[in-house]
Simulated assay, not measured.
Amino acid sequence: MPWLGRRASPKAAVEGAKRVQFSSPLLPYLFLAPQLAVIFIFFYWPSVQAVSSSFYIEDPFGFGATFVGMSNYWDVLTSAQYRSIAGFTVVFTALVTIFSLSIGLLLAVKADALIRGSSAYKTMLISVYAIAAPVAALIGMMFFDQHIGPFVEMASWFGWEMRVGLSYFDTAFAMTVVAVWKQIPYNFIFFLSGLQSVPVAVREAAAIDCRSGFRRFWTVTLPLLAPTAFFLLIINITYSLFDTFGIIDVMVKDKAANNPITLVYKVYEDGFRGNDIGSSSAQSVILMLVVFALTIVQFRFIERRIHYT
């Protein structure tokens, strides 16, 4: 079909055919149009609307709006409740990221060394990832139930009367456990793939040079997994900040005032339950700026230490 393009010139073929020539200069943009439309409709346009709404106090029924400038931002940043939620979000994100990565890496190392029954072992670990976040939260609530929860029973052995949904600390603990459990299979898949891509010759050479398995892993295997670990670090931080919304929504049981919530849930609570569109938009813009700054730090400083082979 000639309209799709023509063959590259012999010179381009010699150079490795790195450039693709189209019969029409508009054809590449036509191919990109669907993806660009999705990005514009579901990302750029809502972002512009959020920035615009953050400078207004809007009627919840859409009958009018009053320009207030930076008042919404000032109210949010000076709120003790917002600072408390931001502090919990930082701690929650750090705990979920650290434990999800470390446990996923540990299970991947064990699965990589397993010879017999490895398929069943891997399937059992990966299957958890197919569970949706709200369903994972419901399963977690069953394990942390005051009457039939096995985790509550185990905690009572040590004198801990766990009350998930009523106690701030207990709910935070349960949310962290469920969020970590939900994310471990994702990390496990990528870490296992990275371990299996390590050349056999490198492993044999490391085994000859160093008899300690832990030292071989720390000095040889882990540096080779650095690109995978950096990718998973970004994914896990994003997951902790945004994708745990379903878990939090189920586990707080509509009692967000007495239970821990993250900044994303605070945006939802103020915007859709409190009908405070201006404050919710200001919070979303602040969160967007924080994520943008965090991304710059990750790629500007952390990625410098990553060596791609």
Rank of each mutant, 00 (worst) to 15 (best):
F43M: 15
I57D: 12
W3P: 07
E58I: 07
L114A: 12
F173E: 04
S193G: 11
T244P: 05
G271T: 08
D243G: 12
T93H: 02
A108L: 03
A179T: 03
F92Q: 00
D59F: 06
N275H: 14
P2W: 08
R211M: 13
L106Y: 10
R19N: 08
G87Y: 12
S24E: 11
Y265G: 02
K11S: 15
W45I: 15
S47A: 12
I39A: 14
E269T: 10
E269R: 11
G246W: 03
Y308E: 00
W160V: 07
I57S: 11
I277H: 00
V128D: 02
M162L: 15
W45M: 15
G117N: 08
G5A: 05
K266P: 08
V20G: 06
L101W: 01
I85T: 10
Q81C: 07
G69T: 09
T171A: 02
R116T: 06
T176I: 12
V76P: 02
K122T: 03
V180G: 00
F144Y: 04
G213R: 10
L224I: 10
G213P: 04
P134L: 04
M288S: 14
Q21I: 14
V220H: 04
L101K: 03
A207Y: 12
I189E: 01
T93V: 09
R203Y: 05
Y186N: 04
D145H: 09
L263P: 02
A113S: 15
M141R: 12
L224C: 06
S212H: 14
Y82Q: 11
T97W: 00
A293L: 06
F242W: 15
S197M: 05
L36T: 06
S52N: 09
Q283K: 13
M1W: 04
A130L: 10
F63M: 13
T66H: 11
I235G: 03
L232F: 02
L4A: 11
S279E: 13
E269P: 05
M141G: 10
G16C: 07
S156E: 10
F43A: 13
L263H: 03
M1F: 06
L195K: 01
P223E: 01
G5Q: 01
G165W: 03
N236D: 14
W45Y: 15
A206K: 02
F158Q: 07
R300Q: 11
P46R: 06
W160N: 08
V297D: 01
F42W: 11
F191V: 00
A226M: 07
S53P: 03
